[in-house]
Design a protein around this nucleic acid. Structure first.
Lengths: 233, 233
DNA sequence: CGCTGCCTTGATCCCGATCAATTCCCGTGG
DNA sequence: CCACGGGAATTGATCGGGATCAAGGCAGCG
């Protein structure tokens, strides 16, 4: 339960109050919260800590401030499919229905901003721009899921890894370098592969000079065009 | 272009006007159209006919009246991933953004009801219940996509086919029988398998007495519980 | 400096893909 | 009503990409 999390792990980092204009307002989640005067709370989660579980009531909507989050589903025998990685700025845990449909965990030490879902929905019932924004965010997640179904159903291992690298490059590259927050197993569970296959694909791309590795999780893309050629359309 | 479709194939079946209460009002799409007085048009598509293409402007929102529709993405070399099958009552082609992200085709002779997206959005800007409903419909599609990612990324061939049969049973069984509108290739492209693998899995389930076949597309589930046991969680 | 978990690399296996015939319907026309 | 044609489905044989099993290597952190 989130209540426990607040009480046991995150109590020290709680910051209650209206989001002020001093905070980065680079996206609409903040803009909404700011504009309509919603109460936003900031929480911290440690590496590997669960944020919410599958089928739990969706009490809050989250936005990553720093760190990284994975959302996934499990089969009863432990097979895992990660649906998405959530990086700084991303909103996750937004549900139209009553409960979360995936489990969310912090991959590394992570700070998130949360807004109560009920109050957000109340605002959406008054302000059509907020309602439109909630729909657009869910629609954006659907777009990602549709692209990912194509990857999982039809792409080869090498194509999947190329797609992954280009996605991460777009989302978290700083000065041409990526610092991946997740391990090989997470990447495999996102791409529908084993960690060994991910590792082999990365090694091969490295040997071809398409990427540089300075530490397993520090990756530099040296030739994006060749990577795009490997990735099927 | 849809305009062409209207002019060439569907002109005879066009029915312009406010949806009346005499039509089945079992779902909210009709309820919305009825309530707010939107103009709904009914169109027909022949077997294999395209309804809209990937990246085309999303001018209309569709609801299946009769028949069946597949929505899919293609890779440049022709590999195809079907994201969903749309059966009578289902809404498809609803986009929050400007364009369609998958191609839609009629699988068999199909009748659909269409509503202009711009006018629907205009209504959503006034009536919060309509706005809420649009969000909920997109959210429902996201739920399906999340479940399907788990299937495509982590389930075995037999598990995928079991999941498929249970889904179709739920959605189109009449008196314990299913009349599948789609061929084995479509099923394969939905499940991330080849048509041969789908066929083999069905044959095996048949030989185990779990399903009855009267014609390749007429399937009777004889033991849903065993099918649920085969389907991982 | 030495664990300990993460990653890489190698060897082998196996499930589902691919290639290849039939067979089975189902629709069509005689 | 039946014969026929042709796409759809089944079934068989073989292949191969990625999984699995199994060591090492390395690096980040105490």
């Amino acid at each position: 339960m989130l209540t426990q999390t607040i009480n046991t792990q995150a109590i020290n980092t709680q910051v209650r109050g209206k989001i002020g204009s001093a905070l980065p307002a680079s996206d609409q989640f903040v803009a909404i919260a700011d504009h309509v005067g919603l109460i936003a709370t900031e929480l911290s989660y440690r590496k590997e800590e669960e944020i919410y579980g599958e089928d739990e009531p969706a009490e809050y909507v989250y936005q990553v401030v720093s760190g990284a989050v994975r959302t996934y589903k499990l089969l009863s025998d432990g097979r895992r499919q990660i649906g998405a990685f959530h990086l700084p700025g991303d909103v996750f845990g937004l549900e139209s229905g009553a409960s979360h449909r995936l489990t969310a965990e912090a991959i590394i030490e992570t700070n998130v901003r949360v807004v109560n879902r009920a109050s957000l929905e109340k605002v959406a019932g008054i302000d059509v721009h907020v309602a439109r924004k909630l729909w657009a965010m869910t629609s954006g997640q659907l777009r990602h899921a549709e692209d990912h179904m194509l990857l999982l159903g039809r792409k080869t291992a090498m194509e999947r890894v190329a797609t992954f690298l280009l996605e991460m490059d777009r989302r978290l590259a700083v000065a041409g370098m990526m610092a991946l927050p997740m391990c090989r197993r997470d990447i495999g569970d996102y791409l529908g592969l084993t960690l060994e296959t991910v590792s082999r694909a990365l090694s091969q791309l490295h040997s071809q000079g398409i990427l540089g590795l300075s530490g397993a999780r520090q990756i530099e893309l040296r030739n994006r065009q060749r990577l795009r050629n490997i990735d099927a359309l």
